[in-house]
Every structure is written in C-alpha cells, then in structure tokens.
C-alpha cells in the first residue's frame, strides 16, 4: 500500500471515529459536530475513491527520515524543557535539528545555539516578563 493510499484510508477511519464520538454528545451541542464529522466522512470517502482510481497514475516521491528525526528531537525538547531548563534544552535541540538538516559546522552552530537561546530567554523573561523554565542553571 502506498503512503497516499494509507493517508486516504486513515482519513476515512478517523472521520468515522469522530462521527461516532459526535453521536455521543448530548443535547443542543450535538447537531453541528454531527454535520461537520458527517461531511468529513463523505469527503474522505470521495477522496479514497479518487485515490484508488488514480492509483499509480501520479508518481510518489519517497521522503527521507529527517522529518521523523526532527519530530523525535522536538518531543524530547518539550519533555525536557521543564526539568532541564530553557537555555540548555533549547541550545541542544537547536544543535540537533541543525545537524539533522545537514549542517556540519559544529563550532558555528554551537555559538549560534547559545546566543539564540540566551537572546530569546532574556527577551522573554526580562522584557516581556514571561516566565521560561530555569531548570538546572542557577540564574
């Protein structure tokens, strides 16, 4: 099964799941979700039919694993942001993403990473008084 077909099937399945959920909403809150989820299912079905009909007609390009790696870094970043702190986790996440995307100049990236995270940290905490996690660094 191609990726495109998988997406089409997932859209139908997701739509049906949401339609069932919408059915369980009580009272006056129900009609609009039913209409929206119903439309989703119909459209997803039409899209699936179209995808099957065109199957193989449009060439599909494969994707590298960069997006997957970046998502992994991001999830780790979000989880560690609080315990480790903004400065460290941001600088590390920045370095990792830059590296995944093919940057090979570690010293330059490191300087940029530190300056960027420090700059954002100062601007947000000092200028906008928005709290960012301090984490392990004693500030």
């Amino acid at each position: 099964m191609t990726a495109r077909l998988a997406v089409a099937v997932a859209l139908v399945a997701g739509g049906v799941f949401l339609l069932v959920q919408a059915w369980g909403i009580p009272g006056g809150s129900r009609p609009v979700p039913l209409v929206i989820c119903g439309a989703w299912v119909l459209l997803a079905a039409a899209h699936l039919a179209q995808t099957v009909r065109e199957h193989g007609a449009r060439p599909e390009s494969g994707a590298g694993r960069e997006p997957l790696l970046i998502v992994a870094v991001l999830v780790g970043y979000a989880i560690l942001l609080d315990p480790v702190g903004y400065l460290v986790s941001t600088a590390v996440a920045f370095l990792l993403v830059a590296r995944i995307l093919g940057s090979r100049s570690l010293p330059r990236d490191a300087v940029v990473a530190v300056l960027l995270s420090a700059g954002v940290y100062l601007a947000f905490t000092q200028l906008l008084s928005i709290r960012l996690p301090q984490g392990v660094l004693p500030l």
Binding site: T90, V97, I100, L132
Partner: peptide
Amino acid sequence: VPRPLLYAGILVFATV
C-alpha cells in the same frame, strides 16, 4: 542564513 540554522531557528521561535 544557511537553511539548517534557519529551520532550527524557526522551530525554536515557534516553540517559545
């Protein structure tokens, strides 16, 4: 700006 740094920077700004 080199693409890898630019994209990494966008992610940092989007997150914050």
